[in-house]
Design a protein around this nucleic acid. Structure first.
Lengths: 317, 317
DNA sequence: TAAATTTGCGTAACCGATTACGTAATTAAT
DNA sequence: ATTAATTACGTAATCGGTTACGCAAATTTA
């Protein structure tokens, strides 16, 4: 399949499916070769029963890794062929206990040679390959068990996005973005307040000149996130993390995390021991982010903002 | 899946299917992660179109390796989303030419990052495996192209069966089998004739004492096939291959081939240059076997058997 | 001991692919 | 110039699986 060499690994699903189809295609004919009147899809159920004990539908489903309706249907078909019999569990009226009939046992015996030959054929085929398919599948099963493909892709996305993000110090040219990004989210969820206007209209005098700092996140050169570290006149806290805003069109690009981390790092470099922030619990992603960075909920501080319903602090180690 | 380690390689089809499912499962979520409104099953078609040129349904089906109805359905869905447009070929009214719309192009652009990340994720996953799944699939595709799994299994079966077959020389204790096996097939398809009784009732005087030979095939020790090499009083032929019979319960175990080969070998060791046989065309497997051994059709020899409607000879080199 | 929850499993609907089949357009053969 | 064969492709039925749902039996909880 040259096509899949072009598309890249994204198409591994499709490619696997096609190989599966090709392998399965022959299966029916192989049974015929051995004069065994059985459908390939029955095999897992059949094999599982041939190992001796009787099993219920759900037990079968669990051991072979199918859904129970699938097993239920297969058992229905095998019943018609007379390979299995069902009996109600006397102790538990819900359970449908399945076992092989004599005819089924006979097929189990007849099938042994086939298993040997198929095994040998695949073994021989494998011997001609550099990469062992059977083992490769096992390794993938294991690794996907540890971490799903989705999670792995999410990580890669984050990595790639982070590489495009640059955190830089505030310059006067960023004043408009600093204001706009903050006004955008504040007025979406709340009302702009007196204190907002003060800080956003005069970042220099209200933040920077007081010993505070502002960082800007550039995504491919474009300023899409801002965050301020405001000097506090407080015996407990050195700085307040505030006026954090990320453009909605840059959502999911990890900018918030990188920006907040940089602010915390800045505070640390300035010798801060504890920083403080105010937020609102309806801003779930923000709260999660603060939590991830190590902020803990505190209470009791007076605040000029009516939208503040949660206060947090971070002890810098 | 511990279960599949028990069943052996026979279950490779099932195991492949389950891995396929697991990989495919995440695909839909991955598209969502990138805000791309697309179904995973569209991808091959979509990718194929994004490479520039417009394509017909059948061309698409061929490049992505699906059936054309499948592509037809997928195009129908993509049309609804507005990702593709169709236009009748003016030169050939049957052809439905498909190409991406502007909206489709946009998605093609947006999807690029996703392809990069998925590729990276799979690459990283692969780096943790001993056996490379992607390459292993490629090797299997190649090898199955050369020889299907069915063919490989057939060969293994033949090997295993042959190992159980032993060809031995006639002994008086085999007279009953020699007679019974021949009577069985002759009276099934034809009527027993005078010449049959002579040879079958007195193998010693009619065959062995005249310089002929009889070989017996033992399958796991049980005599299930017989064949005679009868000395001919003829200037052209040295021997006639005759009275070949294999028990129906031993069908498909390659006994006929092993037996006939041994007879030919015997003739060669006796210095024969040409051997002869008579048969009937309704015995298709037998005729095929003779053909495989190198026998060619001849005509004109008188025969005592009414059931004979084909005569063959083998030139021994 | 009654009520709520969990469990076993059958039925129905769906999903993504296939094969089978029909029809119309084109091309090849007589 | 017909007629026959091939090609393009849409629709329908099927296949092997799934999830959704509902009922009854068993178990847990109050």
């Amino acid at each position: 399949m040259d096509f899949f060499e072009q598309t890249g690994k994204v198409a591994i699903g499709s490619r696997l499916r096609m190989l599966t189809d090709k392998v399965t295609e022959d299966a029916a004919n192989i049974y015929q070769l051995y004069n065994i009147d059985m459908q390939p899809k029955w095999f897992p159920v059949f094999y599982s029963l041939s190992q001796g004990e009787e099993k219920t539908i759900t037990e079968l489903a669990k051991t072979i890794g199918h859904s129970h309706p699938s097993v239920s249907k297969i058992i229905g078909e095998m019943l018609k062929k007379g390979y299995v019999k069902e009996s109600k569990d006397t102790a538990d009226g819900r359970r449908n206990v399945i076992s092989l009939t004599d005819a089924g046992q006979e097929v189990a015996y007849k099938i042994k040679d086939q298993l040997i030959d198929v095994d040998a054929a695949i073994e021989e085929l494998s011997a001609q390959t550099q990469n062992k398919l059977w083992e490769a599948i096992g390794e993938w099963e294991f690794l996907l068990e540890q971490k799903t493909l989705l999670r792995r892709v999410m990580e890669k996305k984050k990595e790639r996005d982070s590489a495009k993000v640059e955190i830089v110090a505030y310059k006067p040219e960023y004043q408009e973005v600093f204001r706009a990004l903050n006004v955008e989210w504040i007025s979406t969820y709340f009302e702009m307040e007196e204190s907002d206007y003060k800080a956003l209209d005069n970042p220099k005098s209200y933040i920077l000149d007081q010993g505070g700092h502002i960082l800007v996140a550039l995504y491919e050169g474009e300023p899409l996130g801002v965050c301020a570290l405001i000097k506090m006149n407080d015996e407990e806290y050195d700085f307040e993390l505030a006026k954090m805003a990320v453009s909605p069109k840059a959502q999911g690009k990890n900018i918030g995390f990188l920006l907040a981390s940089a602010i915390v790092e800045k505070a640390r470099s300035l010798g801060a021991a504890k920083i403080y922030l105010e937020s609102n619990t309806i801003l779930k992603p923000a709260i999660n982010l603060y939590h991830k960075l190590g902020f803990k909920k505190v209470a009791g501080k007076p605040t000029p903002y009516t939208r503040c319903n949660i206060q947090m602090e971070l002890v810098i180690k």
